[in-house]
Design a binder for these strands. Structure first.
Lengths: 231, 231
DNA sequence: TCCGGAGTTTGTTTCAGAGCAACGTTTGGT
DNA sequence: ACCAAACGTTGCTCTGAAACAAACTCCGGA
């Protein structure tokens, strides 16, 4: 178990109002674990017995259809709570979460949630705020999926990843975790073939630059235009 | 303002644990309003200054794209809280809600939410439970949208409406509020043309029976098969 | 009773994108 | 250093569903 430090939590919104003593309490009850790329943190349908906080890395939250198709519902970045089904009175997790890159997460038993909410000021507020954002985000994805053509959906997906995890580099905005064409197709409800073709075309146009599992958005502005977002 | 009665609330999950005195308090702060079919309760992007409870009728929760396309994110049935953006620390509503049939709703100022949560036992728990279900439901719709063909999506949409608002009649399960082909197309991300064709075909096969704005599922079992759900 | 608009049906045309197939390339394990 | 597996590319075909077009039917209001 890695060494845990107060500073890990004190900078994060759900815990930022707390006293050092309280943070110590929280860490005392936490289990810390490292997950390799591709490892599963919890599975859809399993007992929702813990809730989690991602310290480092990136996660994919994934649902599988009875037919075996997968789709990526959202990504989790460091500092975010996830697997908070227990807070919503759910008996089981509604989706699977998988490490997109090597990741570290803390977790607590589900039974501790009410205690966190009542004992730690701002914790409930911040958690439900996150939840609200997530709900809004999914609604947006749904809308997009229902109304936009494949090309725009893929552009949006790239922009969303760039926004959430983008590192600025000399060439452009680099997506901070490994992404395959298959992954993008699972975010947009298309096939890896179509994604591959589009990415090639965009690369030719100088909008993106990609090697296997690694994407840099070289011309964000043009991608925004392709995504069809206006404002 | 219609007359409000204790029994209106005492049977609903968020309030079922409360004392008559507490319910009286809640009603004292509530505003009750009637909405005609097609009326807007609140609009996407507007200040989230109230939260609501649907007493009677049915609502559509709708999002509009910059391009002017609409999609129906979910339906609200009597007894459900809605417009609870304030509870999620959102400044604005993320979607528009429209009365699908003549409806009656109570509402309270956003500022009262924290008080409800702290004063009324079980209120927070039940509300967040509803929220969890809704999140799960939207994730499911998203998955469906991303992986299933139009025919299956429409079958699923019909089943969902039948489930949520179905009245058992001699002919089958009747959807309790007015639905146009256009509406169904907005739930499934297709065109009213495609919906019309499919509904006609299914009518010929004896699976559904529909007149304008009114649908009865005559053979639910066959519709389940068409929807591709297995278990 | 007639009119107009909202909702529905049906036919035809068109094309984006899925499906299939085959091949190329990178990567990590032994 | 090699091999196998994972990942990516590209061409071709074919179909599901959108787009376009044109009536038809029902309903409420003047």
């Amino acid at each position: 178990m890695p060494k845990l430090d107060q500073s890990l939590l004190s900078g994060l919104p759900p815990f930022s109002l707390l006293q050092p003593q309280q943070i110590r309490e929280i860490l005392d009850h936490a289990v810390s674990r490292r997950y390799e790329e591709g490892a599963t943190i919890f599975r859809e349908g399993h007992d929702a017995d813990r809730f989690y906080l991602l310290l480092d890395g990136y996660l994919r939250v994934v649902r599988t259809t009875p037919g075996g198709d997968q789709i990526i519902v959202l990504h989790i970045s460091p500092g975010q709570l996830f697997g908070i089904a227990p807070a919503l009175q759910r008996a089981t997790y509604p989706a699977t979460s998988i490490a997109a890159a090597e990741s570290i997460a803390l977790s607590w038993p589900a039974g501790l949630w009410p205690e966190f909410v009542s004992s730690y000021p701002g914790f409930a507020t911040e958690s439900y705020k996150t939840l609200g954002q997530r709900l809004g985000q999914i609604q947006e994805t749904l809308t997009e999926m229902a109304t936009q053509a494949v090309e725009k959906r893929i552009a949006c997906a790239l922009l969303r990843m760039a926004n959430q995890s983008g590192r600025k580099t000399a060439e452009g905005i680099e997506i901070a975790f490994p992404v395959t064409r298959q992954n993008i197709s699972e975010m947009t409800g298309t096939t890896l073939h179509t994604v591959s073709r589009l990415l090639s075309a965009w690369q030719k146009d100088g909008v993106v630059q990609s090697t296997r599992k690694h994407i840099v958005v070289t011309d964000p502005h043009r991608l925004v235009i392709l995504s069809g977002i206006q404002s």
